[in-house]
């Protein structure tokens, strides 16, 4: 049924990526998106008009690749994320601690990590309200990068629990 895909497709390509402890992190680079996928990204962006676009739809990396692999590749497996968090000295931020630039926000549901974003800045939306984090996200492996309020996320991610992780001591 998928014989044609095997014949036409090109082999997956990963790069050497390791944790601080030297353990290999499985990864693969995604191809650049086609016209239809780019249009779908534009359609999504129209729904979230407060997002600030940083980069149009692109391949190669996903949100985990943005956060932990400097936009060089995509990481897909849950087990690889645990490996990175452990080996790279990440810890969950305590409730009383203030989030800072560079901290990582994980959107999780029933043990699955749906998305990761990096905290960019703290913004005060109203005069008496507290400062809220704005984050940088790369959506999937072929959509673009956007800066947005950390709760202003696509519908599937909205019901998640949010964990903030940091590598600060």
């Amino acid at each position: 049924m998928l014989e044609m895909a095997r014949l036409v497709g090109t082999p997956r390509k990963g790069i050497i990526l390791q944790t601080r402890a030297g353990r290999n992190v499985e990864n693969s680079q995604s191809c650049e998106p086609d016209v239809l996928t780019r249009e779908r990204y534009d359609l999504l962006r129209r729904k979230y008009y407060s997002w600030i676009n940083r980069k149009p739809a692109c391949g190669v990396y996903n949100c985990f690749g943005l956060v932990w692999a400097s936009r060089r590749t995509a990481i897909y497996d849950e087990s690889e994320l645990s490996k990175i968090l452990t080996d790279d000295g990440y810890r969950r931020l305590a409730t009383e601690e203030q989030i800072q630039h560079g901290d990582v926000i994980l959107y999780r549901l029933d043990g699955n990590t749906l998305h990761a974003a990096m905290a960019l800045e703290l913004r005060q939306l109203q005069l008496e309200s507290s400062k809220m984090p704005w984050v940088l996200s790369k959506w999937g492996n072929v959509f673009g990068e956007d800066i947005h309020h950390f709760l202003d996320v696509p519908d599937d991610i909205r019901e998640c629990s949010i964990e903030i992780w940091t590598d600060r001591p």
Partner: peptide, 20 residues
């Protein structure tokens, strides 16, 4: 559908896509 595409394109792990 665009809704299914949006799910796949905004979630990062296959486990999450599968669950949703």
């Amino acid at each position: 559908s665009d809704e299914i595409a949006q799910t796949v394109f905004t979630l990062a792990t296959p486990n999450a896509i599968y669950a949703i």
